[in-house]
Design a protein around this nucleic acid. Structure first.
Length: 808
DNA sequence: CGATGAGTACTTTTT
DNA sequence: GTACTCATCG
């Protein structure tokens, strides 16, 4: 986010800007002798064409690793150096703050300081707010409107559901939120929702609830993320003069990751692009992996018809991966229909073949990966150049456990983000209450956090007063303290809280916002609440609060910070350390690594059963694109794994190798044997619509586990289970339930006792010091049959099986 | 109001 | 298997 108070550019309104404007002159002064602009150096012919084609609509189809960001940034540099526009006349939209930041940095590196930031470079949402703030009155908002996050949204919807007497069990607020989100993604305001669709929620009340929700937002002077675009669209449609102003302003529009745009973003963009028509979209239809959150691959497929006279440039020269990797990815993605079609090629060497390794179960998979990583490490590879990309986050755990055992540094990317943590949201809610007394949702969140005896009943009372008088909750609460309606004790605390807010608002005027934040957290008892908490996370939470205060420093004032926070929900968590990167395939998009491990290529997990069930062929194709994204992250080495057994929802399931494995080209793939022996057991999975696989017939590899009881048990189950498609498809018959066998006897995998159902008296007692092969030393704190709860010195509290523990 | 037990859900994630 | 939510009890 740029400084929100940066002055709006005065220049754009100047009529008749000609080539040779300040930018060009400045540039000419800087590099007078350069025969060719530096930003053009090293571009290949296609890239160069994409940079230099400034007029008219342009679609740049940029395959993985073909230098798409480079083209975008060089294009901006080109526009500026040609004097075709001022920095303030270029609109550059990205999806994530990270991408925006990166773009900004790279442009800055190219064109230097004379281009002080670019006011209109940012995410769809940040630019959306910027526009709405300028014209708030035209869409029925007051200045300083707040942006709700998902939490607030759900709380609001819960209230609406309660008011309508809708059973929240049957119709969860979360579901309604995502339904409304879906509508907003498609650019539908309440009146546009097809009646049939509006009826699906809560027996026909869906559409009505959406309308009610919008009304509530207006009453609260708030918008949600979807509104940032939707209201923008409405603004432009209802106010042609405003739209015309932006047409005049934006000489060039650039859009990153166009394949991820949803309908609302598309409409928003198209409205703006009607002006100059110089719209350049960069994307890769083969990397569209966000269909489930409203992205329309169609947008990119339809570009040429949407923007008449559009030129399409393909970037197919890949600079990232070696030959075998690229060939594998290309062959795989060729199985998708309905693509614009690109053929990636590389002039580099063939390199290493893609490997496919079968493991007996997920544990062995993790062990094998761990060993390979250790080997790489010994060979001098940097751990930070190694990534493990999983389909679903539950897969991460097994790897984490393994890495803890091995003492291998790793880092999980993604997961709960800083600003989503409860303590951060609570702290922010306090600050919001100070900043705007009318922020009811924030007030509600913290009125009884820490616990101060203001329960649901009291809150409801406040609500009633607020509604009756048409005032914000804080004001209603104050009125209540002056009446006799509250119990004396509650009245006292409430009075104290209201007074505290008053006091903080006073103090806000005289002290810095960071000081204020500390005072608020302190005096509200919030910090104290966590200090008293003896749970394991409490210390981390306090640390997070400190971090929050620190993160406020760069901002001018409280409202500036709060505005930033509502849009930028990410943190730059320290990159740079040498650790294996563990993340989902989704979060790997846009990144690259020397070596990429791709575990879990099994039917049901990848492609994910749910994608197939819910989206059918479209779902399968999106999964395949995800596989493509995964493989193309690798520069030098891509290693795919599948396990024959995996525990899902607590039950052991026999699994079938992913169909994607069959779609890899033989010539570029090497089938490896897992070190631990084992592998795909080799039964058929008849009944599937797709034929046999070369992985079907692979003989079980000779190895220790081949003859273990566990292996044989699974083998028997497999043959008696019949022709399942495998995966973890629903339906009782299609599911191998190794868990069932544990009812007959101890659960055994690879000859290792995994669990017993009988609770023999434990040989351990609480307080005893123990050693665990994975987690190291610890102290027994609880006993439940053969499962013990141990507080480990390093790994924290875990529940582990007695069999894994040794007395020390 | 707080602790505890039952019930349930469980792909992917940004703004 | 587990984590999280909700309801009920003390």
């Amino acid at each position: 986010m740029p400084d929100p108070r940066r002055r709006g550019p005065a220049a754009p309104e100047l009529p008749g800007l000609r080539p040779g404007g300040i930018a060009a002159r400045a540039r000419a002064a800087m590099a007078p002798a350069a025969p060719e602009a530096s930003y053009l150096a090293g571009l290949n012919p296609e890239q160069r064409e994409a940079v230099e084609t400034l007029d008219g609509p342009l679609l740049v189809l940029a395959g993985a690793g073909t230098g798409k960001t480079r083209v975008l940034t060089a294009r901006v540099a080109h526009i500026l150096s040609q004097g075709r526009a001022y920095p303030s006349q270029i609109l550059v939209v990205t999806f994530t703050n990270k991408a925006a930041r990166e773009m900004k940095d790279r442009i800055h590196a190219m064109v230097g300081d004379q281009i002080e930031g670019m006011p209109w470079l940012g995410t769809f949402h940040s630019i959306g707010v910027r526009i709405l703030r300028r014209h708030h009155e035209l869409v029925g908002l007051k200045s300083g409107f707040t942006i709700l996050d998902t939490d607030d949204q759900i709380r609001l919807l819960k209230q609406l559901l309660a008011a309508e007497n809708i059973d929240e069990k049957r119709w969860p607020a979360r579901l309604l939120a995502s339904t409304i989100d879906g509508w907003k993604n498609r650019g539908l305001s309440p009146k546009d929702v097809p009646p049939g669709e509006g009826a699906v929620f809560a027996n026909g009340k869906g559409g009505m609830l959406y309308a009610a929700y919008q009304a509530r937002l207006k009453a609260l002077n708030a918008v949600d993320f979807g509104d940032l675009l939707l209201e923008g669209i409405r603004l432009f449609r209802e106010n042609p003069d405003v739209l015309a102003e932006y047409h005049r302003r934006f000489k060039f529009l650039l859009v990153d990751e166009y394949q991820d745009t949803n309908v609302a973003q598309y409409l928003w963009l198209r409205l703006l692009a009607q002006g100059s028509k110089n719209v350049c979209c960069v994307g890769d239809d083969d990397q569209s992996i966000y269909g489930w959150r409203g992205a329309e691959v169609d947008n990119i497929l339809r570009f040429e018809s949407d923007f008449p006279g559009a030129k399409v440039i393909r970037l197919e020269r890949n600079y990232r991966s070696t030959g075998h990797i690229l060939a594998s990815a290309a062959h795989l993605i060729a199985h998708n229909e309905g693509r614009l079609g690109k053929t990636l090629f590389s002039e580099g060497e063939a390199g290493e073949q893609v490997t496919v390794t079968g493991a007996w179960d997920s544990g062995e998979e993790a062990r094998a990966v761990g060993e390979e990583i250790e080997a790489l490490q010994r060979a001098g590879h940097r751990l930070s150049e190694i990534a493990i990309l999983v389909r679903a986050s539950f897969q991460m755990r097994e790897f984490e456990d393994r890495f803890v055992t091995l003492g291998l540094p790793y880092r999980v990317i993604g997961g709960p983000r800083f600003y989503e943590r409860a303590e951060i949201r609570d702290a922010l809610a306090y600050l919001r209450c100070v900043n705007s007394p009318a922020d009811d949702l924030a007030f509600e969140r913290i009125v009884n956090v820490p616990k101060r005896g203001i329960g649901d009943a009291t809150v409801k009372q406040i609500h009633d007063v607020a509604r009756a008088a048409g005032v914000p909750l804080q004001e209603a609460a104050r009125a209540l303290t002056q009446s006799e309606e509250l119990k004396p004790k509650v009245r006292g605390t409430m009075r104290g809280l209201i007074d505290a807010f008053e006091r903080w608002r006073e103090q806000a005027r005289v002290m810095s916002h960071t000081e204020l934040a500390e005072i608020v957290l302190d005096e509200s008892g919030y910090t104290e609440m966590w200090q008293k908490d003896r749970s394991a996370e409490a210390a981390g939470r306090l640390e997070n609060l400190k971090e929050l205060v620190r993160s406020m420093e760069p901002f001018e004032n409280l409202s500036g910070f709060l505005e930033h926070i509502s849009l930028v929900m990410d943190t730059d968590n320290g990159a740079g350390e040498d650790a294996v990167q563990v993340m989902t395939l989704h979060s790997a998009k846009g990144l690259e690594f020397d070596t990429v491990f791709l575990p879990g290529w099994e039917e049901g997990l990848f492609p994910h059963q749910r994608a197939l069930d819910e989206q059918g062929k479209a779902g399968l194709e999106e999964e395949r694109r995800l596989a493509y994204v995964g493989i193309t992250r690798a520069r030098a080495s891509a290693r795919i794994y599948f396990a024959s057994n995996r525990r899902i929802h607590g039950m052991w399931n026999s699994t079938v190798p992913s169909r994607f494995l069959d779609e890899l080209p033989d010539a570029h793939v090497r089938v490896e044997e897992s070190r631990g022996g084992a592998g795909w057991g080799g039964s058929s999975y008849g009944g599937g619509s797709y034929g046999g696989s070369r992985f079907d017939r692979a003989e079980p590899f000779a190895g220790s586990s081949y003859s273990t009881p566990g292996w044989q048990r699974a083998q028997n189950q497999r043959s008696s289970g019949g022709g399942s498609r495998g995966g973890f498809s629903q339906g009782a018959g299609a599911r191998y339930d190794a868990g069932a066998s544990s009812r007959r006897g101890p659960m055994v995998i690879e000859g290792t006792l995994v669990a017993t159902s009988a609770g023999a008296p434990s040989a351990f007692s609480t307080g005893e010091r123990v050693f665990h092969i994975k987690f190291g030393y610890g102290e027994v704190v609880g006993i439940d049959g053969n499962k013990l709860t141990v507080q480990f010195d390093k790994a924290g509290e875990k529940r582990v099986l007695e069999t894994y523990l040794e007395k020390v």
